[in-house]
Nucleic acid binder design. Structure first.
Length: 426
RNA sequence: GUGAGUGUAGCUCAGCCGGUUAGAGCACCGGUCUGUGGAACCGGGGGUCGUGGGUUCAAGUCCCAUCACUCACCCCA
């Protein structure tokens, strides 16, 4: 087809017949509703925050050295008053902003919130990564207890379980406290500086700005160097408090029966994360296997200019969950079939059919043919839609003041007045 | 932003060594068929072969450019 008007690359229409599995509306809805069911059962409350904020909120939220800001991966726009706004790349900053703005500190703590919706990143898209993508997000604010971390991880795993996914891998790590990271980064700089010339260009920059990033560099040369120098993992640099915290989270998870592995090299792209960090991976959903991740961000609120509010939360990538469901061929519940399919047999019956339909909706799911059909065609359509009943409306019925109601499961049919239809459908 | 692959009907695709008016299946619409189980048969609409240029007597086919998509890199959900 010649190019006409299309959606922006990396954005997608979500509808039932979409060619791409992650954008089939029933799949999408299944994931969001399942997540919502689990999270509501935990007492978390839904919050919808705007999809755009003052860019400053989002920039501070993702951290100044984060690539999202550095490489301009956040969409920004200017409104008429010259305010610089940004489309959210993730919702955590908005939720922390809302917590402070609405005085949620006087609520019973922790305040546990969840949301879902579109997120935006100005990146080149690929499988499982889009300019507009969707995320289910949970945040527990106002508690620094490791029990809250363990609950968040357990809830996240429970959501994937409820979805029917099996091939999950929970990787738990800790990024320590800020001072631990300073020590670790100094250690890494000292370790890699002698190899600076051999490192990739990207990693040479990282050497000063964010040496932890060198560890998961994709460059083979970098990886060879990493292997050669024998890097100690971040976990070994935890201070006593962060270490104890990490061990308590791990201990709670074991007692909760959540299986996980310790990943000592887990790294966070965002500056405000402290201590607990985790990712949930799935095999074979593309170049990136992460279904979602989470972590603790006790410093975020202060960074936004508010009081210190400890918090922990996670994000679930909806499209990535869908890819995993497709990969595992998990059966998605089918949309309910119509209770009744109305078949007008002549022009005069069209309006009558619509009147009957409107009388039965919304108690029953009622669909109809919008042009006269012969009975065979009408029946065929009703069967294709897997309707429970079909009703024929023709000249004979009109004279007798009835419709012919056919039970498509049993094959039996009766003539009933329109007023009696509801009783037969119930 | 970088690299590779792919572009023929709404979808999945065929189209030989360049050769007449570009095809099939599915889907859609109509008929056989105002009277009953997803059928069958017949018919129909729908394509500037992604776009532009070049080579050639002749281009869906070869060449160049461009655009789009896909995958991957960077980064991330």
């Amino acid at each position: 087809m010649a190019l006409m008007l299309t959606s922006v690359p990396g954005t997608n229409d979500i509808f039932a017949q979409s060619k791409e599995y992650p954008f089939r509306e029933p799949v999408f809805r299944y994931i969001i509703q399942t997540a919502e069911r689990v999270l509501r059962s935990s007492g978390a409350q839904m919050i919808y925050t705007p999809i755009f904020e003052y860019a400053e909120v989002l920039q501070k939220g993702v951290g100044v050295t984060s690539d999202i800001v550095v490489k301009k991966e956040m969409y920004t726009l200017e409104d008429r008053g010259g305010r610089v706004l940004g489309l959210r790349p993730e919702p955590t900053a908005s939720i922390v902003r809302a917590y402070n703005q609405h005085g949620m500190k006087v609520w019973p703590q922790p305040v546990r919130l969840f949301t879902w919706g579109p997120m935006f990143r100005a990146e080149r898209h690929q499988r499982g990564r889009y300019k507009q993508f969707h995320q289910v997000d949970y945040e527990a604010l106002g508690s620094a207890d490791p029990l809250v971390d363990a609950e968040a991880i357990a809830l996240m795993v429970q959501i994937y379980r409820e979805l029917g996914l099996k091939g999950l891998e929970v990787k738990l790590g800790s990024v320590g406290d800020p001072e631990d990271r300073v020590r670790y980064n100094d250690y890494l700089r000292g370790l890699f500086r002698p190899y600076a010339q051999a490192l990739s260009e990207d990693s040479r920059v990282r050497l000063e700005s964010n040496p932890m990033r060198i560890l998961d560099s994709k460059s083979e040369a970098d990886q060879r160097i990493v292997a050669e120098v024998g890097v100690k993992p971040m976990l070994e640099f935890l201070g006593p408090e962060a270490r104890a915290f990490h061990e308590r989270v791990a201990g709670y998870l074991e007692k909760l029966g959540v299986s996980f592995s310790i990943d000592p090299s887990i790294v966070r792209g965002l500056d405000y994360y402290v201590r607990t960090a985790w990712e949930i991976h799935h095999s074979r959903i593309g170049a990136k296997s992460a279904l979602g991740g989470g972590g603790r961000y006790d410093g975020l609120s202060e960074m936004l200019g508010g009081p210190r509010v400890p918090g922990v939360g996670f994000g679930i990538g909806v499209e990535r969950a869908a890819l995993a469901l497709e990969e595992e061929r998990v059966q998605i519940p089918a949309d309910p079939a119509p209770d009744l399919y109305l078949v007008p047999l002549d022009e005069a019956a069209l309006l009558e059919a619509l009147q009957i339909a409107q009388g039965l909706r919304p108690r029953f799911r009622v669909e109809m043919a919008y042009a006269p059909k012969n009975p065979r065609k009408g029946l065929e359509e009703a069967l294709k839609k897997a309707a429970r009943f079909a009703a024929f409306l023709g000249e004979g019925e009109r004279q007798r003041g009835v419709v012919t109601l056919k039970n498509l499961h049993s094959g039996t049919q009766v003539e009933v007045s329109p007023a009696e239809l509801a009783g037969h459908l119930a």
